[in-house]
Amino acid sequence: MRDFTQPARATGPGVVADGPTGTATILVIDPAGEAPHDEVPATWRPLADTVRVVWLRVPAAPSWKSTVDKVLTMHRDDTSTMLDVVTSGPLAADVIDLVREHSDLVRSVLLVDPEVDVDFPLARVVVRSHQAPDNRIPAPLPLGHPDVVASVVEALGDLTT
């Protein structure tokens, strides 16, 4: 597992967002703290043409659980907006617990290299890294990785068909 405790990850904004409001929303809860420059990662920006991407940088948001709760609660009155949650590795269990409290608002929880077994109807693993000697990126795969974005897009497409 990668180490997410580097002090540089805690700098920058706790939450960044891109995309039109009032549309489907993807809430990315990132334990690695990507997107430190007030923008969602470049690999996610094309999605922001049609959906809202809200990127929560956990190292820069020490009270991230209350922030997630607040974002989910904000969607309570907006029944027209679909909400999907993406997270990875060490946060999978905590995020699933938070979503359980708001399961009527969330369409799916998409997981990348979760550290726990997933037993929640709304959750599904979209990427699982291979533990091989030639694997250059240790698990969990960064949420900004192009393979993660492609897997999320594919999973969201499966949900709409």
Rank of each mutant, 00 (worst) to 15 (best):
S88P: 01
D69A: 15
T25G: 03
I26H: 03
G14N: 03
T79D: 06
W55G: 06
G144A: 13
D94F: 00
S151Q: 12
D113E: 02
L47A: 05
D94I: 00
V54D: 07
V58Q: 09
R124M: 04
W55I: 07
L159E: 15
L122K: 14
D77P: 00
V71Y: 13
V153A: 12
V148D: 12
E101M: 05
V58N: 05
T5A: 11
D158S: 06
G144T: 09
G12K: 13
V118E: 00
Q131S: 09
V51P: 05
P114T: 07
M1W: 05
P31Y: 04
L98D: 11
S129A: 15
L105A: 13
A132W: 08
D3I: 09
S129L: 08
D38I: 06
V16Y: 09
P62R: 01
A32T: 02
R76L: 10
T21L: 08
D69K: 12
D119S: 15
P20T: 05
A150N: 03
F4T: 06
V116D: 07
D78L: 15
R136F: 03
V126G: 02
E101Q: 12
I137V: 15
W44Y: 11
P41T: 02
A48P: 00
H102G: 06
A60R: 02
D38V: 05
S108I: 02
E34N: 08
G12Q: 14
L47Q: 02
A17Q: 14
D147L: 13
P62C: 01
A61Q: 14
L110Y: 01
P142A: 10
R107W: 08
D104N: 14
L83V: 15
T11F: 14
V118I: 05
A32W: 10
V112Y: 01
I137T: 15
T25F: 04
G12P: 13
G33S: 08
T50V: 12
T23K: 14
P59G: 06
L91K: 06
R100Q: 10
P46G: 01
H130K: 12
D84P: 01
R124I: 00
T81I: 10
T5L: 09
I26G: 04
A139L: 09
A155I: 06
D117R: 13
D84G: 08
A155C: 02
P133L: 15
S80E: 12
A8F: 15
V127T: 06
S80N: 04
V118P: 05
D104T: 12
L105H: 11
D30K: 02
S88I: 02
R76W: 06
V153Q: 13
L47V: 00
V106H: 11
P114C: 07
V125H: 09
M82D: 13
K70V: 08
D69E: 12
R57T: 01
W64F: 11
T160L: 10
A139D: 11
V51S: 11
P36S: 13
L27W: 05
P133H: 11
L83Y: 08
L122H: 14
T81E: 10
H37Q: 15
A93Q: 11
D134V: 11
L110P: 00
G14E: 03
A155E: 03
R45K: 14
L159N: 07
L47M: 09
T11I: 10
S80I: 02
A61T: 14
A42C: 01
V126F: 04
P146E: 04
